[in-house]
């Protein structure tokens, strides 16, 4: 009994130490953001001698950070709403017909296969097409691209979720004389919030964090999203580490809030996606 307790405490300590090391880059970033620009270069201690918010004030008042945030939020919210809706519809069709119809069996395989293709192979022709249509430099272009690139995973996740439903739900709807679409909107969707939440969270995080596509398709400063704006700072104020750390910290706030309230759904989504396969 005593040995077991000792063993448990040892494991707890090991896990805590590991977590501390792994989270150090993020913790150190947040702490550094409260050091003044003079102190951040001179002071090699972990904690600031004098805590200051001057970096935050500078970022919010003297840069286009507000614009970047609005752009990021706009893109991420619209993408999440559209993608979750479309993925729910397709996911439901897939859940019902994957095993009955050859077409949907193939569709299901295609979704997995799409993970294999290098992004550049799609991005180069897309850049070509969008430049011909003069749709570069537009937030809506980002919405189209992020939305579609998030679809396969969203459909995959939701079809797995819908497949887990008991058949009685559909039967009871049919007896009440509902059409298939009514069964979906009135019976299935209202009890699907955990699955929809997982899909929405994944889409939001991907859209919020995406860098490479934004970097290729957006040039004008007023259209930039946060990740793009952040790299801008690195180029402009390369050694102003305090400001950079403050900007980075602000960038992770929405995702962190999300994480606290929704980690259960994230874990569900991750495991549903990977374990189903």
């Amino acid at each position: 009994m005593k040995r077991k307790l000792l063993y448990r405490i040892l494991l707890d300590l090991l896990l805590a130490a590991l977590l501390m090391i792994l989270l150090f880059p993020v913790v150190y970033m947040i702490i550094s953001s409260f050091k003044s620009s003079g102190e951040i270069i001179m002071n090699r201690d972990f904690l600031p001698r004098k805590w200051t918010v001057e970096n935050y004030v500078w970022i919010l008042l003297k840069t286009n950070f507000g614009t970047y945030s609005v752009n990021s939020l706009y893109v991420a919210v619209v993408v999440t709403a559209i993608t979750t809706t479309i993925a729910a519809m397709a996911g439901y069709a897939l859940a019902l017909y994957r095993n009955k119809s050859r077409f949907f069996g193939l569709f299901s395989k295609l979704l997995l296969l799409l993970q294999m293709f290098p992004g550049m192979l799609m991005v180069i022709p897309l850049y070509r097409s969008f430049s011909v249509m003069s749709m570069l430099n537009s937030r809506n272009t980002l919405i189209v691209l992020y939305g579609t690139f998030s679809l396969p995973f969203g459909i995959w996740l939701l079809s797995g979720f819908f497949e887990g439903f008991p058949k009685e739900v559909e039967e009871s709807g049919r007896i009440d004389g509902c059409t298939k679409f009514q069964i979906f909107t009135r019976l299935v969707l209202p009890i699907s919030s955990p699955g929809l939440a997982s899909a929405a969270i994944f889409t939001f995080i991907n859209a919020w964090n995406e860098y490479m596509i934004a970097n290729i398709f957006i040039q004008s400063d007023m259209k930039k999203t946060l990740p793009l704006g952040l790299t801008n700072f690195i180029l402009q104020f390369g050694s102003e580490w305090g400001n950079l750390m403050a900007a980075s910290t602000i960038t992770i706030i929405p995702v962190s809030i999300f994480l606290v309230f929704t980690q259960k759904y994230i874990v569900q989504g991750l495991t549903a996606g990977a374990v189903k396969g």
């Binding site: 993020v26 952040l230 960038t251 995702v255």
Partner: peptide
């Protein structure tokens, strides 16, 4: 613990690389 564990994964790549470069 699970939420903390997820942090490196959900942090934007730009933020991760910035803090690593700084460290």
């Amino acid at each position: 613990v699970r939420a903390l564990l997820l942090i490196p994964w959900v942090v934007p790549a730009v933020v991760g690389t910035t803090s690593w470069t700084w460290m």
